[in-house]
């Protein structure tokens, strides 16, 4: 009896690994396609029958992409980098402050603002893109970094996450600091923030990825001066000048930074999700 059970359990484990391996191949397939197309000739991509191996193992497509003056890949990457880094930094600071205040106060103003935050969480920025666009163009911020970054800086999501995280933050640490004569501002930066790097890393990673990958808002507000890499690639895809190998070389270049950030910070993300209120 026991032996039978052991064998069937072992078979089950093997089946489990086979299923996982098949799924892993499927999940990695799109990455393979990016690489295949980025190192292929146009002829190979449009060939009558799919070929698995690329035919151009060199950097020609990437060099061509960066010298293609109709695409302006270098500038687009710069715009995306500025947007993602600045927006992540500012969003995290704004949300940290608000999230902390909301976690430590229970008076009426705090409750109202918490409710407002949750309401904003439900009516996401994407739904109100027209009002925000109207405001941004009225401020004269079209095609500026301000217009690209500032309207998306006030993240109800990040504030909510920080609030939930601070609810579980031990008050004793802060109280000790306050007794030592520090004001709430200094306490916050010197005691609370350094002890919250996990959740900051998690939220920061999510914001960074969202910012780097944003499409709708950059498409609305950027023109030639601040166009981000996602918008550039999207427009290149449907433009008259599209060249598929160059397009996928662009996808490769655009996906690498965010993959690196992701791989390095994945740990925080997983921990952050496990420790906060997303449940």
């Amino acid at each position: 009896m026991r032996a039978v059970r052991g064998r069937s359990a072992r078979v089950l484990v093997v089946v489990r690994y086979i299923v996982l391996a098949v799924l892993a191949v499927l999940f990695l397939m799109p990455f393979y396609v990016i690489v295949r197309n980025a190192f292929a000739s146009s002829r190979l991509i449009a060939a009558a029958q799919w070929q698995w191996l690329p035919d151009q193992w060199n950097l020609d497509n990437i060099t061509q992409l960066f010298t293609n003056s109709d695409v302006e890949m270098g500038a687009s990457l710069w715009h995306s980098a500025v947007m993602a880094v600045v927006q992540t930094g500012l969003t995290v600071v704004v949300a940290l402050l608000a999230g902390y205040a909301l976690a430590r106060n229970t008076h009426r103003a705090a409750r109202i603002l918490s409710a407002l935050t949750i309401f904003t969480l439900m009516v996401p920025a994407a739904v109100t893109f027209i009002p925000t666009f109207v405001m941004t163009s009225a401020l004269g911020w079209i095609d500026t970094f301000r217009g690209l970054i500032v309207p998306g800086m006030f993240s109800a999501f990040a504030t909510y996450m920080f609030r939930q995280s601070f609810l579980g933050f031990p008050k004793e640490l802060e109280e000790a600091a306050l007794i030592d004569g520090a004001n709430p501002w200094r306490t916050f930066w010197q005691v609370v923030v350094p002890n919250s790097m996990g959740i900051i890393g998690a939220v920061g990673t999510i914001i960074f990825i969202g910012s780097w990958n944003a499409f709708l808002w950059p498409m609305l507000v950027t023109r030639n001066g601040t166009r981000t890499v996602q918008v550039t690639l999207s427009q290149f895809m449907t433009s008259q000048l599209v060249n598929y190998p160059e397009l996928f070389a662009g996808a490769l270049v655009a996906v690498i930074p965010v993959l690196l950030v992701f791989l390095f910070l994945q740990r925080f993300l997983v921990q952050g999700v496990e420790t906060t209120g997303l449940r």
Binding site: D70, V71, E72, S137, I142, R223, N224, R227, V231, T232, Q235, F236, S239
Partner: peptide, 14 residues
């Protein structure tokens, strides 16, 4: 200015 992207939308917006 050599405008890449959706020109028909960009001009009225600009």
């Amino acid at each position: 200015t050599w405008y890449a992207g959706n020109y028909d939308t960009a001009v009225p917006a600009a």
